[in-house]
Simulated assay, not measured.
Amino acid sequence: MSTSPSPAATPKERRPKPIVSGRKSMPEHITVKVFVLAPIVALAIAVPFAWGWGLTWVDVGLAALFFVVSGLGVTVGYHRYFTHGSFKAGRPLRVALAVAGSLSAQGQVIQWVADHRRHHAFSDRAGDPHSPWLFGTGPKALAKGFWHAHMGWLFERDITNAERFAPDLLADRDIRRVDALFPLWVGLSLLLPGVLGGLITWSFWGGVTAFFWAGFVRIGVLHHVTWSVNSICHMIGDRPFTSRDKAANFWPLAIFSFGEAWHNLHHADPTCARHGVLRGQIDISARLIWMFEKLGWARDVRWPTTARLDRLATAKS
């Protein structure tokens, strides 16, 4: 009579791979600090720079353009498509979304996805790379948790194991190529605004100010918008749907995050292509996915259903 094998007898290859795969080298650690801190320095000097002579409408227009392209590259590409599979896309759109997300300078696509899938696997529990609730609930603990969730976690040396959390992307040759070219995409994200600013104004100074505003400052603002979803949206806000963590909706962030701040529904139903599902909840990322679907570029979109939303809402009571 055969019996099922005990856990101790499970073959090694069937056991879960470790959460982390190693630690960042010192050059990698320094590079992360540069990518995180340089845009913050740009934000710090932005106001005095603009006060006398450093901001034009060309700078504003280019900053808005690159903010939208790189921001939607993160929300639609890195997040809803690559991390959660909210829709399916052909090769051209898949590559374009990976490149657009890379323009945000938030990290290589494979590591970003691995970190975020790990976040969902252990949300607001031990193992979550950026939960604000890992240190307790007192005032000092929450202040430490906010810093950790917002940006402190980026300075830690552990590397999330992509073989465990993103094996599908590791197996995708196109995405591995985009991933390997990450320094190129970041360089273009900084230099293209300057080049365009110089050409539009036909002046060297127009290129310098565009490089500053539509390059460094735009990246810095987008960084903090994304990080605020990790920190603020796991601490305060409304929770109309049931999730196993503290993910909440924070409406002041909804437009700038392209709908990501409707975070409660996302954690209640992570693969849903639309996060803002209630009346008045504008979700720009979902609208772009809808446009992709209408153009035939996206298929099998996981749109919310009334029955599913009712189950998630009533389970709370």
Score class of each variant (00 low, 15 high):
Gly194Tyr: 09
Gly194Cys: 11
Gly194Leu: 10
Gly194Thr: 13
Val195Glu: 00
Val195Gln: 00
Val195Met: 03
Leu196Pro: 02
Leu196Thr: 00
Gly197Val: 05
Gly198Ser: 01
Gly198Cys: 01
Leu199His: 05
Leu199Thr: 06
Ile200Trp: 03
Ile200Met: 01
Ile200Pro: 01
Ile200Phe: 02
Thr201Met: 02
Thr201His: 00
Trp202Ile: 01
Trp202Asn: 14
Ser203Arg: 12
Ser203Thr: 13
Phe204Pro: 00
Phe204Ile: 14
Trp205Asn: 11
Trp205Phe: 15
Trp205Met: 14
Gly206Ala: 11
Gly206Cys: 13
Gly207Asp: 05
Val208Arg: 04
Thr209Cys: 02
Thr209Phe: 02
Thr209Gly: 02
Thr209His: 03
Thr209Pro: 00
Ala210Gln: 03
Ala210Trp: 04
Phe211Tyr: 13
Phe211Lys: 05
Phe212Leu: 04
Phe212Glu: 00
Phe212Ser: 02
Phe212Ile: 04
Phe212Trp: 08
Trp213Lys: 08
Trp213Met: 06
Ala214Glu: 02
Ala214Lys: 04
Ala214Arg: 05
Ala214Pro: 08
Gly215Asp: 04
Gly215Tyr: 05
Phe216Thr: 07
Phe216Lys: 05
Val217Asp: 04
Val217Cys: 06
Val217His: 05
Arg218Thr: 12
Arg218Met: 10
Arg218Phe: 11
Arg218Gly: 06
Ile219Trp: 07
Gly220Arg: 11
Gly220Asp: 07
Val221Phe: 15
Leu222His: 14
His223Met: 06
His223Trp: 12
His224Glu: 08
His224Asn: 15
His224Ile: 09
Val225Arg: 03
Val225Asn: 04
Val225Met: 13
Thr226Asp: 01
Thr226Met: 11
Thr226Trp: 05
Thr226Phe: 11
Trp227Lys: 05
Trp227Met: 12
Trp227Leu: 14
Ser228Pro: 08
Ser228Phe: 10
Ser228Ile: 12
Val229Ile: 15
Val229Glu: 03
Asn230Gln: 07
Asn230Gly: 04
Asn230Tyr: 08
Ser231Met: 05
Ile232Phe: 15
Ile232Ser: 12
Ile232Asp: 12
Cys233Glu: 14
His234Arg: 06
His234Ser: 08
His234Ile: 14
Met235Gln: 15
Met235Trp: 07
Ile236Gln: 07
Ile236Phe: 10
Ile236Met: 07
Ile236Thr: 12
Ile236Ser: 00
Gly237Leu: 07
Gly237Tyr: 07
Gly237Ile: 11
Gly237Phe: 06
Asp238Pro: 02
Asp238Glu: 14
Asp238Met: 09
Arg239Trp: 03
Arg239Leu: 03
Phe241Cys: 08
Phe241Ala: 10
Thr242Leu: 15
Thr242Gly: 11
Ser243His: 10
Ser243Leu: 06
Ser243Glu: 08
Ser243Phe: 11
